[in-house]
């Protein structure tokens, strides 16, 4: 593996075990399967997926908040033993995370000054006045005036709280920042402001971002490369603009087709690309494509029996898709897909 890589994941798997119930049936939940991922310094990698895709679990594994069940993890070329719990990842590797819920991640009992100081405290202890200066600067960076240091999180708007969360993450001068739906809970205006701010900070501090979201448009805008996840697997990955403008995997296409349209004339004819069968609660078999029950072009032959692997798309560099029939999408869709 190349020394250029900041982080590399090889064949990562994560299984959550549910409690044994009365009949001794253990119901394992496979949150991640066969994840191979490379993260380069200075880039923004977007991870897009919906509920159950495993995107948050992946973010936590990169940070060390979750331990993978199997697989290997390398940070800057050196293997990180996944059997040992990494509690102080932030200080060890310089990785930080910003979560979705702005109010929940800030201790409501503390003033913002204390909230920020707490973060500094885990890394180093610097003398009083220079520490205060650092705190003030950190707020300035996220475009908040230093009087916010004296406020409590409950006295701030969601957007302001999220800025503080970002400021706190940046205080420790991290190299990598995982943004897990960091702007999703905010209104559209605040979202764009914050995203622009994040981009500015990235350039200034030469940060690497992992941008996790369910919003394909936001991910495509923010990231250089995008990884699309479904039910714990990577189904497509490549350059963000290619993924957004010329998606290959049926799920990615479906995701794009579901982006809400504001024009009522177009919205009223907007059609989902998903299969139109009656839904059941049956589980998708282990060795099938995870998308088989919703995919408009899936068949009984290959799609149920063999999980598709990520294969390179010849036309584009670094573009991979995990689908048996992606090349014939249009043809098959016209035949089978249209409800």
């Amino acid at each position: 593996m190349s020394k250029d890589l900041l982080v590399e994941l090889i064949d990562i798997e994560k299984v959550f075990l549910a409690r044994k119930n009365f009949m001794n049936k253990v119901k394992p939940q496979k949150a991640l399967s066969n994840i191979d991922l490379q993260i380069y310094p200075g880039e923004t990698l977007g991870i897009v997926g919906e509920t159950g895709s495993g995107k948050s679990t992946l973010g936590k594994i990169i940070l060390g908040l979750e331990r993978p069940t199997s697989g290997r993890l390398f940070i800057q070329g050196k293997e990180v033993l996944t059997s040992r719990t990494r509690s102080k990842i932030g200080s060890e590797y310089g990785f930080q995370m910003v979560f979705q819920d702005p109010a929940g991640s800030l201790n409501p009992q503390l003033r913002i000054e204390q909230v920020l100081a707490e973060a500094l405290g885990t890394v180093e202890s610097s003398p009083g006045s220079s520490r205060m200066v650092r705190l003030q600067q950190s707020l300035e960076e996220v475009e908040l005036s230093k009087e916010f240091l004296n406020r409590y999180s409950g006295q701030m708007s969601g957007g302001q709280q999220q800025r503080v969360a970002n400021a706190r993450a940046l205080l420790t001068k991290p190299r990598l920042l995982v943004l897990d739906e960091a702007v999703s809970a905010l209104d559209a205006v605040t979202q764009s402001h914050l995203l622009r701010l994040l981009k500015k900070l990235q350039k200034k501090h030469n940060l690497t971002y992992i941008f996790i979201s369910h919003d394909l448009e936001a991910v495509a805008e923010m990231s250089d490369r995008t990884v699309v996840m479904y039910q714990g697997r990577i189904v497509e990955q490549g350059e963000s603009s290619t993924i957004y403008h010329r998606p290959k995997h049926p799920y990615t296409r479906g995701l794009k087709a579901s982006i809400p349209i504001r024009d009522p004339r177009l919205a009223k004819t907007q059609r989902s690309l998903m299969r139109r069968d009656l839904l059941t609660n049956e589980e998708v078999p282990q060795h099938a494509c995870p998308f088989v029950d919703r995919c408009p072009i899936s068949d009984e032959a290959k799609c149920i029996t063999a999980t598709p692997q990520l294969t390179c798309v010849p036309e584009y560099s670094n573009h991979k898709v995990a689908c048996h029939y992606y090349r014939d999408f249009d043809e098959r869709f016209n035949q089978i897909g249209k409800g």
């Binding site: 919906e50 369910h214 087709a257 998903m274």
Partner: peptide, 8 residues
Amino acid sequence: LDVTVQLE
């Protein structure tokens, strides 16, 4: 709901 389910 998820956005794909929303459209459905």
